[in-house]
Design a binder for these strands. Sequence first.
DNA 1: ACCTGAACACCGTTCAAGT
DNA 2: ACCTGAACACCGTTCAAGT
Lengths: 217, 217
Amino acid sequence: MRRARSTKRTVAKPKGAFHHGDLRWALLQAASLLLERDGTAGVGLRATARLAGVSQTAPYRHFPDREAILAALAEQGLTTLGDRMAGAAREAKDPVAALNAIAETYVALAAERPYLFRLLFGPEVADKARHPAVRAAGLRAFDVLIGAIGAGQRAGVVRAGEATDLALGYWAAIHGIALLLLDGMVGERAAAAGGPAALARQVAGQAWLGLTPRPAR
Amino acid sequence: MRRARSTKRTVAKPKGAFHHGDLRWALLQAASLLLERDGTAGVGLRATARLAGVSQTAPYRHFPDREAILAALAEQGLTTLGDRMAGAAREAKDPVAALNAIAETYVALAAERPYLFRLLFGPEVADKARHPAVRAAGLRAFDVLIGAIGAGQRAGVVRAGEATDLALGYWAAIHGIALLLLDGMVGERAAAAGGPAALARQVAGQAWLGLTPRPAR
DNA sequence: ACCTGAACACCGTTCAAGT
DNA sequence: ACCTGAACACCGTTCAAGT
């Protein structure tokens, strides 16, 4: 936290006139608060401006439209996701532990900040070509997983093959279970498995079987 | 199609007064059209009413709020998904082909009707407890997959274990790749694999490895 | 440059009223 | 029962204007 957070209706507004160039930062801070509290639908241009203590039209100085604010939040979120995945992988003692840690981190962020997680991959930021920074942040997170798969291959615990393809299959599985958990589609299975995290570990374990060296066929 | 579709601004409005009890159906038809054309955001109460040729408040006779319309669309969509999956499994000649056909059908629906697919699992219908019919339709689709896994176990091509758990891991993988494809996150990989469907087959194949009988450990 | 207030064309929802 | 029009409190976005 680089700045004290006010509990009043406005956030980080000095007193009178200008934001000295960090209005963009203040707006993103406000938008992030609204996202956590009210979901994507709550991140309105007017609502964000109100919370930041500026006029309704001030955000247009920094963002061309509402989608641009959401895209900036998504980029922040994907960077956070990538950083956490990289941190988890770095602290693991072997490639298998690294993959498990990545899966755990991934599902944990989805559970911790569901609205943010949906925003990262959802349709609100539809035209990814218009927001290359979002796409780049996402690919950077994916790179962490590819790296862990590659390390597994070098250690001989992951089967041969294009690391990107193997990573994609694993990613799909943990991405899928994270979303199914958010959607409340697998509540009973989670209860039976001993909680959402346990169910995610189970699914990750099954995905892991797709990565192990195959016996002679 | 139970009724001719008009190309005018209104749909299925006889001429003068009442809908003789099928206003609900006409509203859902209009909402479905709007969903395909403009996405979830386009499915407004007023816009739907306008397209159906009734006043803005008429929908409230059949749906308590906007979310209820979206939930009804989601229920329809999940039923369609389940039916298609069941049809694909029925026509397959063995359990392995059935699983492949289910995965293909799943990803195909996501590609064919992206807005509908997102609605099925997204946050627009947030409180699933308030919409048990949606949840039931989703679980029915899942049952098709569980059945295919069970058939594979009986045929000896799928390893032993709780069929529901094995199905969940497989579901997560195809659900994940379907969404990653929609999100435009794996466009390059899809091109390299020979198209989205080919990439989905590849991921399904990897998920399949999690289902095969294990060699002696 | 940066920010403002008024205006435009929309929303979802509520309410009193009509047949 | 079923449908209507007016009203309320919101939206995103545009525009002319202010410092």
